[in-house]
Simulated scan of single mutants.
Amino acid sequence: MFGPVTARDDHPELPAGLTSRPLTLAEARVAYELLAAEQRLELDGRVEIEEADVVGDWQRPSFDVATRTIGVLDGDRVVGYAELTYDERGEAAVEPSYRGRGIGTWLAAWMRRTARERGSEIVGMPVPEGSAGDRLLTALGYHVRWTSWVLHLPAGARVPERDLPAGHVVRAARPEEHEVVHDVIEDAFLEWSEREREPMSEFRATVLERPGFEPWHLRVVVDETGEQPQVVAVAVVQIFVDEQSGARDAYIARLATRRDRRGEGLAQALMVDSFAAARERGVETAGLNTDSRTGALGLYLKVGMQVTENWVHRAAHLNG
Rank of each mutant, 00 (worst) to 15 (best):
G246H: 06
A172L: 04
R145S: 14
A269H: 06
Q268W: 06
N289D: 14
G304K: 09
R258A: 12
G80E: 02
P211V: 06
E227S: 12
P175I: 05
A267L: 05
S62T: 15
V180W: 01
V55M: 05
A173I: 01
E284F: 05
A52S: 15
V127C: 05
R116P: 08
V78P: 07
D57M: 07
S245H: 02
E209L: 09
V78M: 12
L73I: 08
D273L: 04
A205L: 08
L164P: 11
E227M: 08
L73S: 07
D134E: 07
Y142P: 06
L208G: 11
T69Y: 01
H313P: 00
V127K: 04
S97A: 15
A108F: 11
R254F: 08
I122W: 10
R46T: 09
H182N: 02
M200R: 14
A66K: 11
V47Q: 08
D291M: 08
F189D: 01
S245R: 03
G80T: 03
D249Y: 05
R314N: 00
A115Q: 09
E38V: 14
L35N: 11
L318Q: 04
E284Q: 14
Y86E: 12
L190F: 02
G282S: 13
V181M: 12
R77C: 11
W192Q: 06
N310D: 12
T294H: 08
T6Y: 00
V123I: 10
L218N: 08
P165C: 01
G100Y: 11
N319K: 10
V272L: 07
